[in-house]
Structures are given as structure tokens and as C-alpha cells.
């Protein structure tokens, strides 16, 4: 029995290790400071980098975070603290459906309402598509991390004559903020790795993004685009970009672990 379980664990873990190993082996040769700071060059021209894709990703994920976090946290608070309202039930259900939605269809949606309307693929459209991907994750993790704040703490606060909304803002969120941070980080990790929502929204550009209203590059799109190309140096660059992305994901996930560790290892006093 133990053998079977160990086998299952191996089957689950080994592919991940193989992928990480492969990405490191293939991507490391591409890595250099110039690779991170230079803009792409045409095939065969040495000295090219992925700076425009990095900046495009940072811009779009950053903007998507600014859009998704306030809305998602707000929705999560509402789901958790006012579950008796019908609106809360309906929107919570919608949120679940949205979380399961194929991301390419979110891209099509944003294409229809933003790209067609503005007559241009743009970083803004990409950011909005990514925000829609992030929104249900932020809302759900916010809800879950506030729901585990014990009723006794809410009641302690209410019994002191603290109004409900202040109790939610100060006591409930204050106690559940580690979980909230975790949700935001997880959603950022998810958005940073998404390609499908960007295909029909931000498209791609080899240039450093100068405007929200022009197409913009991104790391996942660059991996897809370069990886399919027939040029060896571009394919190497795709591996390098993949290594950067994987490293970023691992870093975020480790940070999340630390967050959760702190949440359960005890309590920190603030005087």
C-alpha cells in the first residue's frame, strides 16, 4: 500500500521535476543581463533580448492587478460577510462559473467589446482580459480567508459597539489579511503565465510598450511565438523566457507558502 502511494507521489512529482530540469537546461544558455535588458533582434542578429516582453507583461499584469484586486477583494468580502443576500448568492455562483471559463473565450469577449471598438489590439485590452482571469481567483480566496476568521472574533468586536462594516474592515480583514495576500499573489502568478487571453487582445509587439493603446508583447506570447519559429536563436530565446517565467512562478509560490506558514504558526502582535 505504502509502495503504491509512493508510486503515485512519484508520478505526480517526477514530470514537474523533469519539466523544471529541462527548462533550466535549455534556458540557462540564453540567460544573461543583456537578454533581460535588450529588445528583440531579427533572427540571426545576435544580442537580442526579451526586455519588451518583460515590460509588456509587467505593464499588463500590473494594470490587471490594479483592476482585479479592488473589485475581487470587494466581491470576496461581500460573499463572505453578506451571504444571506440573494445578490451575494447569485454573484458568488457567477464567480465560480467565471473561474472555470476557458480563458480564450474571455479573450474573445474583450476582443469584441474593446479591440473592435477601439479598432486596435492594445495593452489595455490585454490587461482587461487578464483582470477577468484574476478576478474570480481573488474573490474566491478573499471569501475563503475571511470565512475562516472565527465568528467569536466578529462577535467580540460587535459586542464592543463596533458597527458591522468597521468590524469587517478592521477585525475580519485584519485577521484574514495573510490569506488575502496569498490570493492576490496566486492570481498574479496565474495572470503572468496566461497566453490565451492575450492572443486576441494585446497581440504582440517587439517594441518596448509606449502606450496602453498599442499592441504589447508579453513573456508567454513570446514563448509561443518564438517557440514556433524556425530560427534556432529565437527558439533558444523562448527557452530563456520560459526559464524566467518558471522562476517567477516558483518565487511567488514560495512567497505564498511563507505567507500561509505565518498565518498558521501563530500570531504577531502589533502594539
Amino acid at each position: 500500500m505504502t509502495g503504491l502511494i509512493l508510486l503515485a507521489v512519484a508520478v505526480a512529482v517526477v514530470p514537474l521535476l523533469l519539466i523544471i530540469g529541462d527548462v533550466v537546461a535549455q534556458g540557462a544558455p540564453a540567460m544573461s543581463l543583456a537578454f533581460l535588458t535588450n529588445t528583440p533582434t531579427p533572427p540571426g542578429v545576435p544580442g537580442g533580448g526579451i526586455a519588451s516582453a518583460i515590460q509588456g507583461s509587467v505593464l499588463m499584469v500590473g494594470l490587471a492587478t490594479l483592476i482585479a484586486v479592488p473589485i475581487g477583494v470587494g466581491a470576496g468580502i461581500y460573499f463572505s460577510e453578506w451571504p444571506e443576500s440573494r445578490l451575494s448568492f447569485l454573484s458568488s455562483f457567477t464567480n465560480d462559473v467565471l473561474a472555470e471559463f476557458p480563458t480564450i473565450t474571455l479573450g474573445i469577449f474583450v476582443y469584441l467589446i474593446i479591440v473592435l471598438a477601439t479598432r486596435s489590439f492594445s495593452a489595455l485590452a490585454g490587461a482587461i482580459a487578464l483582470a477577468i482571469v484574476m478576478l474570480p481567483i481573488v474573490a474566491r480566496t478573499t471569501e475563503e480567508s475571511l470565512k475562516i476568521v472565527p465568528v467569536s472574533l466578529r462577535e467580540a468586536s460587535m459586542a464592543l459597539g463596533v458597527p458591522r462594516w468597521k468590524t469587517v474592515l478592521r477585525v475580519v480583514i485584519g485577521t484574514g489579511k495573510a490569506g488575502l495576500g496569498t490570493g492576490v499573489l496566486l492570481s498574479v502568478a496565474r495572470a503572468a503565465g496566461e497566453t490565451a487571453p492575450l492572443l486576441l487582445t494585446a497581440l504582440y509587439s517587439p517594441f518596448i510598450p509606449r502606450s496602453l493603446f498599442l499592441p504589447a508583447g508579453s513573456i508567454p506570447y513570446l514563448i509561443y511565438y518564438y517557440g514556433l519559429s524556425p530560427f534556432a536563436d529565437w527558439r533558444t530565446a523562448a527557452w530563456g523566457a520560459a526559464l524566467l517565467l518558471v522562476a517567477f512562478m516558483l518565487l511567488l509560490n514560495l512567497t505564498v507558502k511563507v505567507f500561509i506558514g505565518r498565518r498558521f504558526s501563530g500570531v504577531r502582535a502589533e502594539f
Binding site: 472565527p150 467569536s152 472574533l153 462577535e155 467580540a156 468586536s157 477585525v171 485584519g174 485577521t175 500570531v267 504577531r268 502582535a269 502589533e270 502594539f271
Partner: peptide, 8 residues
């Protein structure tokens, strides 16, 4: 039920 994230 003291608030766990707060000091005495």
C-alpha cells in the same frame, strides 16, 4: 476571545 493579531 482576545483579538489574536493584537497586543494586550
Amino acid at each position: 476571545n482576545p483579538f489574536p493579531t493584537m497586543s494586550i
